[in-house]
């Protein structure tokens, strides 16, 4: 979503983005020309009239599970966003019985919060697991 019109979105898809991925952009390119949606989400920059790099993870019930906002010159880490979605999906499927510690990614160990785990996370999880291998 940006403050560009849908016509500019079509031109950007046709003349640049489709050439990067050899197909059309597979998701909806939304237009927020007056910035009103960006304002609701707190990411619209009134001084320059554009949306900043806001990214929201919204679950199947419409609840915001996470967000990140960057100023324009720095791009996002798509892998990290997908990792967060996978983590939220795991937690949701476990009905909250499992939690994903720092550095978790699919295949890595989760934690099962319980009274016995209090003060014993150091036995279950090592600091090195917070980092990529």
């Amino acid at each position: 979503m940006s403050t560009d019109s849908v016509f500019v979105h079509k031109m950007w898809n046709d003349h640049e983005l489709s050439k990067m991925i050899n197909k059309d952009v597979p998701f909806a390119m939304l237009s927020d020309q007056d910035g009103s949606i960006g304002k609701m989400y707190g990411i619209y920059d009134e001084d320059s009239g554009v949306e900043t790099r806001g990214r929201f993870i919204i679950d199947p019930d419409g609840i915001i599970q996470g967000f990140e906002v960057l100023t324009p010159p720095v791009g996002r880490n798509v892998s990290e966003t997908l990792r967060q979605v996978q983590a939220f999906q795991l937690v949701r499927e476990s009905n909250g019985t499992e939690a994903t510690p720092s550095g978790w990614k699919p295949g890595k160990k989760t934690l099962k919060p319980s009274p016995e785990l209090v003060g014993n996370v150091w036995k279950e999880w090592k600091v090195s697991e917070a980092f990529d291998d």
């Binding site: 940006s2 949306e51 324009p72 720095v74």
Partner: peptide, 19 residues
């Protein structure tokens, strides 16, 4: 319309910008 699905809502400064 996306109820029941996971949604990534991404805002960005503008088409044809560089990042």
């Amino acid at each position: 319309e996306y109820k029941g699905k996971w949604v990534l809502l991404c805002f960005y400064p503008g088409d044809f910008t560089f990042v």
